[in-house]
Nucleic acid binder design. Sequence first.
DNA 1: TATGAATGAGACTTCATTCAT
DNA 2: CATGAATGAAGTCTCATTCAT
Lengths: 209, 209, 209, 209
Amino acid sequence: MEKRAVKSMVKDEKLIETRRSQIIKSAVTLFKEKGFHRTTTREIAKEAGFSIGTLYEYIREKEDILYLVSDFIYDQFRVRMEEEASSNLKSLDLLHLVISSYFKLVDDKQDEMLVMYQEAKSLSKKSLPYVLKKELQLCAIFEKILTRCVEEGHFALSEKEIKAAAHNILVFGQMWAFRRWALRSIYTIEEYTNIQMEFIMKGISKNNK
Amino acid sequence: MEKRAVKSMVKDEKLIETRRSQIIKSAVTLFKEKGFHRTTTREIAKEAGFSIGTLYEYIREKEDILYLVSDFIYDQFRVRMEEEASSNLKSLDLLHLVISSYFKLVDDKQDEMLVMYQEAKSLSKKSLPYVLKKELQLCAIFEKILTRCVEEGHFALSEKEIKAAAHNILVFGQMWAFRRWALRSIYTIEEYTNIQMEFIMKGISKNNK
Amino acid sequence: MEKRAVKSMVKDEKLIETRRSQIIKSAVTLFKEKGFHRTTTREIAKEAGFSIGTLYEYIREKEDILYLVSDFIYDQFRVRMEEEASSNLKSLDLLHLVISSYFKLVDDKQDEMLVMYQEAKSLSKKSLPYVLKKELQLCAIFEKILTRCVEEGHFALSEKEIKAAAHNILVFGQMWAFRRWALRSIYTIEEYTNIQMEFIMKGISKNNK
Amino acid sequence: MEKRAVKSMVKDEKLIETRRSQIIKSAVTLFKEKGFHRTTTREIAKEAGFSIGTLYEYIREKEDILYLVSDFIYDQFRVRMEEEASSNLKSLDLLHLVISSYFKLVDDKQDEMLVMYQEAKSLSKKSLPYVLKKELQLCAIFEKILTRCVEEGHFALSEKEIKAAAHNILVFGQMWAFRRWALRSIYTIEEYTNIQMEFIMKGISKNNK
DNA sequence: TATGAATGAGACTTCATTCAT
DNA sequence: CATGAATGAAGTCTCATTCAT
C-alpha cells in the first residue's frame, strides 16, 4: 500500500475526501502560523467550518491530521514534478527544466514546505515511513533524470554520486523555504535559482578538478 | 549583547553554570528522543537529577531550556570551527580542512544537530533572533575563507555566490543529520564527505560550465 | 456596557446561565468558608458537581468566578432594593422602608455580603470598576430617596451631606455582615435595625446641634 | 496574655524586635500593593534586606507575618488614641477631639488601615481572636468617652446605643480607607470629618425626633 | 452524519518551608 | 545567626478525545 490508512467513522468515500481536504487546508493554514503542537484540534475544526465532533468522524487522532497534510503536500509535489519530468526533452534540458520548476514550486508552496519540514519529526513511528517514502519518490525523479544524463554521457557520476546529487537538488529547494529568513533578503527566487543551478551543474560536471 | 539573558533565582554564578549544563545535557537527551513539545519539564528535572523546583531556580520558563540548548550547541560548533579556521594554512587548504572538520563535527554531534534543526522553530520570537544570528556567524566563517580564496584567485565568485556557497556548505552538513534516515544507509561519513567535498569544490570552481 | 463579558467556550446561552449559577452557588459556599485565595478551582468544580474541564468551559480564569459572584450578589441587592424603592409611599416612609428592608436583606444574605466585601479587593483591575459601579448604583438608590426627602422639606442637607448619608446607610448594612463577630452577640437584627435607624434619622435631621 | 506568641529560633530579644519591625515595615509596603496572598515570603525578606532563611529565624510561618502586621497597626492606633483620650478635657470636647484625631490618624495611616481591613480575614483561627480583641479595645475607648458623656447628661443613650455609636464611629473612620475610591473624589478629609462629625453628634443627640 | 458539552489526565509554574553550610 | 539552594506539594489551566443527542 502506498498510503497509510486513516480510519474514519463515515462510510461515504466522497464525503470523506471532501471533509479531509477541508481539514488539510485548514490545518496547513494553522500549522504555518503556529506549528503542529500549538494548533489545537478545535481550531482546525473551526477553521474547516465544522464541529470538533465532525472532525473526529474523519480522523482517529490528531496525528492523523499531520499525516494527511504531509501526504497531501508530497502528492502535490510529486504530481507536478512527474508531469514536468515526462516532458519530451533531451535529458540535459529536462534536468534544467525540472530543477527550475521544482524551485518555482517550492517558492510557490513555501508555507506548505515549511510546515512539512518542520513538523515531519512530529509524525509517529506509524506514519513516518510513509512520508519518508514519499520524499524518496521525489528523490527518485531526479535520480532518474540524472541517470539518463549520465547514460547519455553528459556527466560521469557513480551511483552514489547520482544519489547525492539528487538529494542535494532536493535540499537546495527545501533550503529556500527553511532558510528563507536569511535567503530572501539576499536573493530573488530567480537569482537563487540561477546561482544554485550553476552550482549544481558545475558540481556534477565531468572535467575540472 | 550576544546572548539573551536567562533569569535565574540563584546568585552563585558557578552553580548556575553547573546546573545549566546539567539541564542542557538532560534536555538534549530527551529532546532527541521525543522532541521539545513532548518532553515535560519534570522529565528534564528528573533526568538532570534534581527536583522540578530546582529546575525552575535556573530558568524562568520551559522555552528557556530550548534557548539554552540551542545556544550551547551553536557555541560548541562556533568555537570548534573558529579554532580550525584560524589554522595557518593556504586558503584553499583551509577551506578543505574546515569543511571536512565541520562534517566530522556534524557526524559527532548528530543528535544535537537534529535537535537544533528540528526544534528551532519552537523558539519564541524572543529567542529566535539570537539563534539565527548564531547560524549566521557559522555562515560567516565559511564566507571569510571563501572570500580569501577568491582574493587569492582560486575561484571567481561574486559576493552573492560566496554567500550561497557558504549556506550550501552549512546545509550539506546539516543534511547529514536531518536526512540521516536516507543517507546513512548509502554512505559512511567519509564517503559522504568526499562526495560532497567534490560537489562543492566543482560547484564553486572557475572554468567549466 | 453594564457588565464585563466573561468568555465561555459553550454556545448554548441557557446552559451558560445554568452552569454559571451552579458555579456561583458553589463558589459562594466555598469562599465563605475559606476565602477566594484558599479555594481552588478544582474544589469549586467539584462542589458544583462537574469536572474541572467543564468549569473552564464557562470561565476563562479563576478571577472570572470572583467577578461572577460579585456581579450576582450586587444584582440581587439592586433588584430587590429597586423594587422596594419604587413603592408608592411618601418619601420619608419610603426611606424608612428601604433602609429596613436593606438591613433585612443584608441579614439574609450575610454570607454573600461577607464574601463580597472581603474578596472584592482580589478583583483584578479589569473587573474592579464594574463592581464599584454596582456599589455606586446601590448608593444612588438611597441618594435619590434622600434627595426627595430634602426636596419635600423633611431634611436640610447639602449635596455632599446626602452623599455621605447614603454611604453611611450602605455601610451600616455592610457592618452587620463584616462586624458580625461583635454585633451578633449584642443585637438581634431587629434591635440593630432600630438603633441604626434612629441614629441615621437623627443624624440627618434638621434642627438640633 | 494580650499577644499571641510568635515563635522565633533566635534568643536575643532585642534582635527579634529589630528584625520583626523590619519585617512588618516591608510587609506593610508589600501587602498594600498586592495583598497578603499575592506577596511572597521571599519578597518580604528581600524588601526587609535579609535572606529568606533569616526571615524564617524570626517567624514560624507566613501567617505569622500577617499577625505581626495586624498587631503592630492596632497597637499604633491604640497608643495614639489612648494618648488623646487621656487629655484633660470635658467629656463632650474629648469626644470631639478623639473622633477628629482618629479620623486624622486614619487618613495618615490609610494604607495600613486598608491592609488591616482587607487582610484580616486571612488570619488563621489561631490569630483572629487576638486581633478582634484589639479592635474591641479601640471600640472601648469610644465607649468609655461616650459613657462619660451620658453620665454627664450630654446624651441619653442606653448601653446598647453606646456600643452601636462606638462601632459606628470606628467604622466611619475605616470607611475613609476602604471606600476611598468613592469618598476621596467627593471630600477632603476635613470635609469628611466635619460632615461625619455632625452626623455622629446628631445621631447620638438627645432631643429631636 | 453532525454536534458540542463533558471529561480528566497532565502540563507548566509557584512558593512556603527546610537545612546544610 | 545568617544564608540561599533545594524541595515538592499544590495550583491554574489546556486540550485531545468521547459520547449522548
